[in-house]
């Protein structure tokens, strides 16, 4: 046990360039969630905090690492929510807040938006490694605790990261145009996504149409215009109308404002007052400027 139920997993990184070999620390514990198959007593997944960055943390490379701890534990899947903010162009600072999970799709349209993927739902900088079975997970944890507790064992059992043959790094990785899209595949993805959206739209429309048919307690039915497509749109429009009503107040007085003497006097007074206020304000400003020594010509 290291901290708050996490177990430390030390991974040795080989020497590269002029840097000597070093150790990367992950912190692991069984992964639990609201899903029925991910409860404390039946989960097969391991929650990893501070995993290695994505190209170094692939299914293959995680397998080689984990096999070194427990050769009998088989891994079926690795999810990773990498600590990466690709919108952080250095010129304008960061864009992604690592403390939040923001879904613009849902926010832009609560009815038709699509949820975040399972991977995206993980906290930033964490990974979930799923074993084939519960035993694999338990065995892995036991072995890891043993290694950690037994200092002599720890010395000769160094767990090393070995990389993934299928992942290219260095020149090969960076001399490629990044994020190049295969057009045929993309066409399919786009088409599929649009189709799904249409279906959702259809569903929502059906929902609305259903509303029409519901007779409420007082015996009324909802009237829906032909343009209305979703429930919240209807509710939203009601809200908006109410707002507009509040704003529009009858302010169309057609009184003359410079008819009576008192009106003119009042206006002059106001003008004088504002003139004076501005004067005072300017005095303050100049005072401030003097304090900042703004009047030194040399």
């Amino acid at each position: 046990m290291t901290t708050r139920g996490f177990v430390k997993l030390e991974i040795a990184l080989p020497e590269v360039a002029n840097l000597p070999s070093s150790t990367h620390c992950c912190y692991v514990k069984p992964h639990t969630s609201k899903l029925p198959n991910q409860q404390q007593d039946n989960t097969c997944s391991l929650f990893v905090v501070n995993p290695l960055p994505q190209p170094m943390w692939t299914l293959a490379s995680v397998r080689t690492i984990f096999r070194q701890i427990s050769s009998a534990s088989h891994i079926s899947n690795v999810l990773l929510h990498d600590c990466i903010d690709e919108s952080r162009v250095s010129s304008i600072g960061s864009g992604v807040n690592y403390d939040l999970h923001i879904n613009l799709s849902i926010l832009s349209n609560p009815d038709l938006g699509s949820p975040l993927s399972e991977e995206e739902m993980l906290p930033f900088g964490t990974s979930v490694v799923t074993f084939v079975d519960r035993d694999g997970l338990e065995l892995f944890l036991t072995n890891l605790t043993n290694i950690n507790n037994n200092k002599s064992k720890k010395k000769d059992k160094i767990i090393t990261w070995k990389g993934d043959e299928n992942v290219s790094l260095g020149f090969e990785r960076y001399s490629k145009v990044q994020n190049l899209v295969n057009r045929d595949e993309m066409e399919k993805i786009v088409a599929k996504s649009l189709l799904e959206f249409q279906n959702r739209e259809k569903e929502a429309e059906d929902d609305v149409n259903n509303l029409k048919n519901i007779v409420d307690e007082d015996g009324f039915t909802l009237v829906v215009g032909p343009q209305r497509k979703t429930k919240s749109e209807i509710l939203g429009s009601l809200r908006k109308k109410k707002l507009e009503k509040d704003v529009i107040t009858t302010n169309d007085k057609k009184e003359k404002e410079d008819f009576y003497r008192f009106q003119i006097r009042e206006r002059k007074k106001q003008e004088m007052g504002s003139l004076l206020a501005k004067f005072r304000e300017d005095q303050e400003r100049v005072k401030l400027m003097r304090q900042r020594r703004k009047f030194r010509p040399y």
């Binding site: 002029n18 840097l19 990367h24 290695l52 990785r173 960076y174």
Partner: peptide, 21 residues
């Protein structure tokens, strides 16, 4: 963990990198 970051940089950069000081 600066050391770890630099190591990751070196691994990612691979053969491009001569040294990290």
């Amino acid at each position: 963990d600066i050391e770890d970051i630099l190591k990751s940089c070196a691994i990612l950069g691979g053969d491009l990198i001569k040294s990290i000081e």
